[in-house]
Every structure is written in structure tokens, then in C-alpha cells.
Amino acid sequence: MFEITISIISGALICGGLVFFLGAAVGLVRFPDFYTRMHSAGKGDTLSTIMILLGIALYQFHDLFREAHSLEEFFEHFKIELLVAIKVTAISVLIMLTSPTSTHALMEAGYDDGMEPFTCEDEDADENQNGKESAGQ
């Protein structure tokens, strides 16, 4: 029962992380300019990474109550699994700190570099251009 519960929770976390990663990847391909792409990459990437890593950290304990001959053996397994889970959580905390920082730094660099944000006028121009192209075809 314990194993099934752990597997379901971690599987749900990992699948949710994959959904957010799909959103980030689609946003990175489909969005029109640098700032919106940065928006999708920064948020979707961070959240999906944290969710997948937490799911894996939880999955470390899935066979905690397997056959153990003594209490010391049980604690031996538990220590190893706890160490790996703490390390995976440390990676997720590290990414939670560093990913927004690097996103902010890259955004500032892009702003200093003179990137123009995508505005409504660009959208109208794009639509007119697309209309002309489809009319030409």
C-alpha cells in the first residue's frame, strides 16, 4: 500500500512536470519575440524541473518497507535513500535559486542590448503581411 501510494504521488508530480516542460518548449518555439520567449522559458523550465526532481526524490522511498532481516538493515537502507533524496532536493533548491537569477541577468543583457519588445503594431503588421501572403497564394 505504501509503495503504491508513493508511486502514484511521484508519478503525478513527474507527469505534471512534463506537462509544464511541454508548455515551456511550445512557448519557446511559438512566441514572437525575445522577452515573451524568455517568459515561457524562465517560468516553465523552473517549475517543471522542481516538480520532476521532487517526484524523483519521493520515489527514492518506494521500496522502504521491503524484506529487512533486522532493524539495523532497515536503517541502513533508509540512510542511503534519505541521502539521495536530500541530494535531489538540493538540486531542485539550487535550480529554484539559480534559474530565475540567470533569466533576470539574460533579460537585463537583452534590454541593454537594445532588443525591441513585441507590440500591438508589430502584431497588426504581421497580420497584414500574412493576409497579403494568403491573398497572393
Partner: peptide, 28 residues
């Protein structure tokens, strides 16, 4: 072998952060 690969992943995440910060500094 999660114990071994987790250390690799930790190092890789740190290197990735340093690399993107260096690129941002360069473009500034």
C-alpha cells in the same frame, strides 16, 4: 545508481548557472 548520478547532476546544474551568467555579462 542514483547516488552517483545525482552528484553529476549537481555539478552540471552549477556549471550551467555559471555559464549563463558569464554569457549575460558578456552581452552587457
Amino acid at each position: 545508481q542514483a547516488g552517483m548520478f545525482v552528484d553529476f547532476a549537481l555539478a552540471y546544474a552549477l556549471l550551467n548557472f555559471v555559464g549563463s551568467l558569464a554569457a549575460a555579462r558578456y552581452f552587457k
